[in-house]
Amino acid sequence: QIGDLVNIDLDLEIVQSLQHGHGGWTDGMFETLTTTGTVCGIDEDHDIVVQYPSGNRWTFNPAVL
C-alpha cells in the first residue's frame, strides 16, 4: 500500500521477465535492485509505482516486490 517500503529480492533476469507488460525494464532501473523504495502509487492496471531516494519513480509488476 502507499507509503510501504519495498525491496526487490529477485535475480535480474526474473525481474526483467516479470516486467514485460508492466512498464518494461530500462538500464536506469538497476538502482532498484540494491535500494529500498517507497510505494507512492498504484496505477489503473494495479501495477505499483515506487519512488527511490534518487528521485526516480519506477512502475513494477506487484510480483516483483
Rank of each mutant, 00 (worst) to 15 (best):
Q16H: 02
T38I: 14
L12M: 12
L65S: 01
S17H: 12
S54D: 08
G23E: 00
L12Y: 09
C40W: 09
Q51S: 11
D45V: 07
L10R: 01
I2G: 06
E13F: 05
E31G: 05
L12C: 06
P62L: 00
S17L: 13
R57P: 04
I42M: 11
N7G: 05
G21K: 07
E13V: 07
D45K: 14
L65N: 02
G28D: 14
T32H: 00
E31L: 00
I48V: 15
T35G: 08
V6W: 04
G41E: 14
N61R: 08
V64F: 02
T26M: 10
T36C: 08
L33S: 03
S17G: 14
W58L: 01
W25L: 02
H22R: 04
G21A: 07
D45L: 09
L10W: 10
H20F: 07
G24P: 03
V6F: 03
T36F: 08
H22L: 10
G23K: 04
G23T: 04
N56W: 01
T38D: 08
D11G: 07
I48G: 01
T38A: 09
F30L: 15
D11Q: 07
P53T: 00
Q1S: 14
T34Q: 07
T34R: 13
D4E: 14
D43R: 13
T59W: 08
V50R: 04
G28T: 10
S54M: 00
S54C: 05
E31C: 02
Q19W: 00
V15W: 00
W25G: 06
D9W: 05
S17M: 14
G37E: 01
E31T: 06
T35D: 11
D9S: 13
H20D: 05
F30W: 12
L5I: 13
E31R: 04
L5V: 08
F30A: 15
Q16R: 13
T26Y: 09
T34E: 14
G21W: 00
L10N: 11
G21F: 13
W25V: 05
D4N: 08
Q1M: 15
G37K: 02
D9V: 06
I14A: 13
F30M: 12
M29K: 05
W25F: 09
G24F: 02
I2V: 12
G3T: 00
G28L: 13
G55S: 02
C40S: 07
V64M: 01
H46P: 02
T38Q: 09
D9N: 14
A63M: 14
T36R: 07
T59G: 01
G24D: 08
G41C: 12
T32L: 03
E44M: 11
H46D: 15
Q16Y: 06
F30H: 12
T35C: 10
L18V: 06
T34L: 09
E31W: 05
L33W: 06
S54P: 05
D9F: 12
R57W: 05
Q1Y: 15
I14M: 15
V15P: 02
G23I: 06
R57T: 13
Y52H: 04
D27G: 09
D45R: 15
T36N: 09
L65W: 05
T38H: 05
I42S: 06
D11E: 14
I42V: 12
T26H: 11
A63V: 12
W25H: 06
H46M: 15
V50P: 00
T35V: 06
E44P: 14
D45E: 09
T36S: 14
T34V: 13
T59C: 13
P62R: 06
N61F: 01
C40K: 07
Q19D: 02
G41D: 15
T35N: 04
D43M: 07
V49P: 00
W58P: 03
G23M: 05
Q19T: 00
V50M: 07
I14S: 14
V49T: 09
I42Y: 09
G24V: 04
E13T: 13
G41K: 12
T34P: 00
L65M: 08
H20A: 14
T35K: 06
